[in-house]
Protein backbone atom coordinates (compact mmCIF):
# COMPACT_ATOMS: atom_id res chain seq x y z
CA UNK A 1 0.00 0.00 0.00
CA UNK A 2 1.21 3.45 -0.81
CA UNK A 3 2.05 5.85 1.97
CA UNK A 4 -0.47 8.37 3.14
CA UNK A 5 -3.44 6.05 3.19
CA UNK A 6 -3.34 5.23 -0.50
CA UNK A 7 -3.96 8.69 -1.79
CA UNK A 8 -3.71 9.27 -5.48
CA UNK A 9 -0.77 11.54 -6.12
CA UNK A 10 -1.14 13.53 -9.28
CA UNK A 11 1.69 15.10 -11.23
CA UNK A 12 0.25 18.59 -10.74
CA UNK A 13 2.68 20.50 -8.58
CA UNK A 14 0.92 22.63 -5.97
CA UNK A 15 4.10 23.80 -4.28
CA UNK A 16 7.50 24.31 -5.82
CA UNK A 17 10.26 25.50 -3.52
CA UNK A 18 13.59 26.06 -5.22
CA UNK A 19 16.79 26.75 -3.31
CA UNK A 20 15.10 29.01 -0.80
CA UNK A 21 17.28 30.94 1.58
CA UNK A 22 16.05 33.12 4.39
CA UNK A 23 18.68 35.40 5.84
CA UNK A 24 18.32 37.69 8.83
CA UNK A 25 20.64 40.35 9.97
CA UNK A 26 20.74 40.16 13.71
CA UNK A 27 22.78 42.05 16.22
CA UNK A 28 25.30 40.06 18.15
CA UNK A 29 24.09 41.31 21.53
CA UNK A 30 20.38 41.04 20.80
CA UNK A 31 19.69 44.75 21.01
CA UNK A 32 15.97 45.31 21.35
CA UNK A 33 15.57 48.86 22.63
CA UNK A 34 16.15 52.26 21.12
CA UNK A 35 18.22 53.28 24.12
CA UNK A 36 20.55 50.33 23.68
CA UNK A 37 20.72 50.90 19.94
CA UNK A 38 21.74 54.51 20.48
CA UNK A 39 24.40 53.60 23.05
CA UNK A 40 25.82 50.75 20.99
CA UNK A 41 25.86 52.89 17.85
CA UNK A 42 27.72 55.72 19.57
CA UNK A 43 30.23 53.28 20.99
CA UNK A 44 30.44 51.75 17.51
CA UNK A 45 29.74 48.38 18.93
CA UNK A 46 26.82 47.43 16.73
CA UNK A 47 27.88 44.18 15.23
CA UNK A 48 25.60 42.44 12.88
CA UNK A 49 25.81 38.87 11.86
CA UNK A 50 24.15 37.17 8.99
CA UNK A 51 22.00 34.31 10.10
CA UNK A 52 20.34 31.82 7.80
CA UNK A 53 17.02 30.51 9.08
CA UNK A 54 16.69 28.61 5.83
CA UNK A 55 19.69 27.71 3.77
CA UNK A 56 19.03 26.21 0.39
CA UNK A 57 15.75 24.33 0.77
CA UNK A 58 14.19 22.74 -2.29
CA UNK A 59 11.20 20.44 -2.56
CA UNK A 60 7.86 20.20 -4.23
CA UNK A 61 4.45 18.90 -3.28
CA UNK A 62 2.10 17.41 -5.83
CA UNK A 63 -1.65 17.40 -5.49
CA UNK A 64 -2.62 14.62 -3.11
CA UNK A 65 0.76 14.42 -1.50
CA UNK A 66 1.70 15.02 2.13
CA UNK A 67 5.20 16.24 2.83
CA UNK A 68 6.37 16.37 6.44
CA UNK A 69 9.09 18.47 7.95
CA UNK A 70 10.89 17.29 11.03
CA UNK A 71 13.83 18.67 12.91
CA UNK A 72 14.91 20.08 16.23
CA UNK A 73 13.53 23.34 17.62
CA UNK A 74 15.00 26.27 15.74
CA UNK A 75 15.85 24.21 12.68
CA UNK A 76 13.72 26.49 10.50
CA UNK A 77 10.47 24.52 10.36
CA UNK A 78 8.21 27.43 11.27
CA UNK A 79 10.11 29.77 8.98
CA UNK A 80 9.55 27.35 6.13
CA UNK A 81 5.83 27.31 6.86
CA UNK A 82 5.80 31.12 6.83
CA UNK A 83 7.62 31.22 3.52
CA UNK A 84 5.18 28.80 1.91
CA UNK A 85 2.22 30.67 3.45
CA UNK A 86 3.66 33.77 1.69
CA UNK A 87 3.91 35.62 4.98
CA UNK A 88 7.69 35.87 4.54
CA UNK A 89 9.24 36.54 1.14
CA UNK A 90 12.41 34.46 0.78
CA UNK A 91 15.74 36.28 0.66
CA UNK A 92 16.69 34.26 -2.39
CA UNK A 93 15.33 31.29 -4.25
CA UNK A 94 11.80 30.86 -5.43
CA UNK A 95 8.48 29.70 -4.02
CA UNK A 96 5.50 28.95 -6.23
CA UNK A 97 2.16 28.00 -4.73
CA UNK A 98 -0.76 27.26 -7.01
CA UNK A 99 -4.25 27.66 -5.59
CA UNK A 100 -5.78 28.38 -2.23
CA UNK A 101 -3.73 28.01 0.92
CA UNK A 102 -5.25 27.34 4.31
CA UNK A 103 -3.11 27.29 7.40
CA UNK A 104 -4.37 25.42 10.43
CA UNK A 105 -3.16 28.15 12.69
CA UNK A 106 -3.08 28.17 16.45
CA UNK A 107 -6.71 27.75 17.15
CA UNK A 108 -8.47 30.96 17.90
CA UNK A 109 -5.57 33.29 17.16
CA UNK A 110 -7.89 35.45 15.09
CA UNK A 111 -10.69 35.37 17.63
CA UNK A 112 -11.94 38.20 19.75
CA UNK A 113 -13.57 37.36 23.11
CA UNK A 114 -16.07 40.23 22.89
CA UNK A 115 -17.54 39.06 19.61
CA UNK A 116 -20.21 36.39 19.33
CA UNK A 117 -19.52 32.97 17.90
CA UNK A 118 -21.17 33.92 14.61
CA UNK A 119 -19.21 37.17 14.33
CA UNK A 120 -15.97 35.34 15.03
CA UNK A 121 -16.75 32.77 12.35
CA UNK A 122 -17.18 35.61 9.85
CA UNK A 123 -13.98 37.36 10.88
CA UNK A 124 -11.88 34.22 11.04
CA UNK A 125 -13.13 33.11 7.63
CA UNK A 126 -12.34 36.51 6.14
CA UNK A 127 -8.84 36.36 7.63
CA UNK A 128 -8.40 33.01 5.92
CA UNK A 129 -9.22 34.70 2.64
CA UNK A 130 -12.82 33.61 2.19
CA UNK A 131 -15.44 36.03 0.97
CA UNK A 132 -17.96 37.63 3.29
CA UNK A 133 -20.90 36.23 1.30
CA UNK A 134 -19.46 32.73 1.44
CA UNK A 135 -18.95 32.96 5.20
CA UNK A 136 -22.44 34.30 5.80
CA UNK A 137 -23.94 31.27 4.13
CA UNK A 138 -21.75 28.90 6.12
CA UNK A 139 -22.20 30.22 9.67
CA UNK A 140 -24.98 27.82 10.61
CA UNK A 141 -23.31 24.77 9.12
CA UNK A 142 -20.04 25.59 10.89
CA UNK A 143 -21.81 26.18 14.19
CA UNK A 144 -23.71 22.94 13.85
CA UNK A 145 -20.60 20.91 13.05
CA UNK A 146 -18.90 22.37 16.12
CA UNK A 147 -21.99 21.51 18.19
CA UNK A 148 -22.43 25.15 19.15
CA UNK A 149 -25.66 26.10 17.39
CA UNK A 150 -27.24 27.27 20.65
CA UNK A 151 -24.26 29.46 21.54
CA UNK A 152 -23.62 31.32 18.27
CA UNK A 153 -25.14 34.58 19.51
CA UNK A 154 -23.15 34.66 22.73
CA UNK A 155 -19.80 36.48 23.02
CA UNK A 156 -17.13 33.80 23.10
CA UNK A 157 -15.66 35.06 26.36
CA UNK A 158 -18.49 32.99 27.85
CA UNK A 159 -17.21 29.89 26.02
CA UNK A 160 -15.00 27.26 27.57
CA UNK A 161 -11.60 26.85 25.94
CA UNK A 162 -12.79 23.60 24.39
CA UNK A 163 -15.74 25.37 22.80
CA UNK A 164 -13.47 28.07 21.34
CA UNK A 165 -11.15 25.44 19.92
CA UNK A 166 -14.09 23.58 18.38
CA UNK A 167 -15.40 26.72 16.75
CA UNK A 168 -11.97 27.62 15.39
CA UNK A 169 -11.37 24.13 14.05
CA UNK A 170 -14.78 23.97 12.41
CA UNK A 171 -14.22 27.34 10.72
CA UNK A 172 -10.69 26.59 9.58
CA UNK A 173 -11.64 23.25 8.04
CA UNK A 174 -14.93 24.33 6.50
CA UNK A 175 -13.34 24.58 3.09
CA UNK A 176 -10.84 22.22 1.53
CA UNK A 177 -7.94 24.23 0.13
CA UNK A 178 -5.41 23.29 -2.53
CA UNK A 179 -2.66 23.44 0.06
CA UNK A 180 -3.10 22.72 3.72
CA UNK A 181 -0.42 23.88 6.14
CA UNK A 182 -0.41 22.06 9.46
CA UNK A 183 1.78 22.99 12.38
CA UNK A 184 1.36 19.98 14.65
CA UNK A 185 -1.67 17.79 14.24
CA UNK A 186 -4.41 19.32 16.25
CA UNK A 187 -6.31 17.41 18.80
CA UNK A 188 -9.16 19.47 20.01
CA UNK A 189 -11.79 19.35 22.73
CA UNK A 190 -13.22 16.28 24.42
CA UNK A 191 -12.82 12.69 23.30
CA UNK A 192 -15.79 12.75 20.91
CA UNK A 193 -14.74 15.92 19.21
CA UNK A 194 -11.13 14.82 19.08
CA UNK A 195 -12.14 11.80 17.02
CA UNK A 196 -14.37 13.93 14.85
CA UNK A 197 -11.66 16.52 14.23
CA UNK A 198 -8.99 13.91 13.57
CA UNK A 199 -11.31 12.26 11.05
CA UNK A 200 -11.87 15.57 9.34
CA UNK A 201 -8.17 16.35 9.20
CA UNK A 202 -7.46 12.99 7.55
CA UNK A 203 -10.39 13.47 5.22
CA UNK A 204 -8.91 16.78 4.12
CA UNK A 205 -5.49 15.23 3.74
CA UNK A 206 -6.99 12.54 1.57
CA UNK A 207 -9.25 14.75 -0.48
CA UNK A 208 -6.62 15.62 -3.02
CA UNK A 209 -5.13 18.72 -1.52
CA UNK A 210 -1.43 19.00 -0.97
CA UNK A 211 -0.33 19.01 2.64
CA UNK A 212 2.73 20.44 4.31
CA UNK A 213 2.96 19.04 7.81
CA UNK A 214 5.29 20.14 10.58
CA UNK A 215 5.29 17.75 13.48
CA UNK A 216 7.23 16.30 16.34
CA UNK A 217 4.96 13.29 16.30
CA UNK A 218 7.21 10.92 14.36
CA UNK A 219 4.64 8.13 14.24
CA UNK A 220 2.17 10.51 12.59
CA UNK A 221 4.86 11.61 10.16
CA UNK A 222 5.59 8.01 9.19
CA UNK A 223 1.97 7.00 8.75
CA UNK A 224 0.65 10.13 7.06
CA UNK A 225 3.27 11.49 4.74
CA UNK A 226 4.45 10.46 1.33
CA UNK A 227 7.82 12.14 1.76
CA UNK A 228 9.64 13.82 4.60
CA UNK A 229 12.36 16.39 5.05
CA UNK A 230 14.73 16.51 7.98
CA UNK A 231 15.83 20.09 8.49
CA UNK A 232 18.99 20.89 10.38
CA UNK A 233 20.15 24.48 10.84
CA UNK A 234 17.94 25.62 8.01
CA UNK A 235 19.20 23.12 5.48
CA UNK A 236 17.64 19.82 4.47
CA UNK A 237 19.78 17.03 5.83
CA UNK A 238 17.76 14.18 4.40
CA UNK A 239 14.85 14.26 2.02
CA UNK A 240 13.07 11.10 1.03
CA UNK A 241 10.85 8.34 2.30
CA UNK A 242 9.44 9.12 5.75
CA UNK A 243 10.73 5.90 7.31
CA UNK A 244 14.32 6.61 6.30
CA UNK A 245 14.18 10.27 7.24
CA UNK A 246 12.72 9.53 10.67
CA UNK A 247 15.38 6.89 11.20
CA UNK A 248 18.21 9.33 10.44
CA UNK A 249 16.61 11.94 12.67
CA UNK A 250 16.22 9.52 15.57
CA UNK A 251 19.81 8.40 15.21
CA UNK A 252 20.90 12.06 15.45
CA UNK A 253 18.70 12.81 18.44
CA UNK A 254 19.87 9.77 20.38
CA UNK A 255 23.47 10.39 19.52
Amino acid sequence: MAKGGGKTVSSEKIVEVTNVKMAYRRTRHRVSSLKQTAIETIKRRMEYEQFFALNGVSFDIARGETVSIIGRNGAGKSTLLKVVARVLPPTSGRVIVRGKVAPMIELGAGFNPELTGAENIMLYGALLGRSVQQMKSRIEAIGEWAGLTAHLDVPIRAYSSGMVARLAFATATDETPDLLLIDEILSVGDEDFREKSAARTFEMMNSGCAVLLVSHDLEAVKSLSTRAIYLENGAPKVFGSPDEVVQVYLADVHH
Binding site: V83, P89, R98
Partner: peptide, 28 residues
Protein backbone atom coordinates in the same frame (compact mmCIF):
# COMPACT_ATOMS: atom_id res chain seq x y z
CA UNK B 1 -4.45 32.12 -7.89
CA UNK B 2 -0.74 31.53 -8.16
CA UNK B 3 1.84 32.88 -5.75
CA UNK B 4 5.31 33.27 -7.17
CA UNK B 5 7.83 34.74 -4.75
CA UNK B 6 10.12 35.83 -7.58
CA UNK B 7 7.52 38.38 -8.68
CA UNK B 8 8.31 40.95 -6.03
CA UNK B 9 8.34 44.61 -5.10
CA UNK B 10 5.26 45.37 -7.11
CA UNK B 11 4.57 49.07 -7.44
CA UNK B 12 2.62 50.98 -4.83
CA UNK B 13 -0.50 51.15 -6.97
CA UNK B 14 -0.95 47.39 -7.16
CA UNK B 15 -0.34 47.09 -3.41
CA UNK B 16 -3.02 49.68 -2.78
CA UNK B 17 -5.30 47.73 -5.09
CA UNK B 18 -4.67 44.59 -3.05
CA UNK B 19 -5.78 46.49 0.04
CA UNK B 20 -8.88 47.69 -1.75
CA UNK B 21 -9.67 44.10 -2.70
CA UNK B 22 -9.59 43.14 0.99
CA UNK B 23 -12.34 45.62 1.82
CA UNK B 24 -14.66 42.81 2.95
CA UNK B 25 -12.16 41.93 5.67
CA UNK B 26 -11.63 45.63 6.39
CA UNK B 27 -15.34 46.11 7.00
CA UNK B 28 -15.43 43.17 9.41
Amino acid sequence: QVYDSSVRQTPVISQLKAIYESRGLLRL
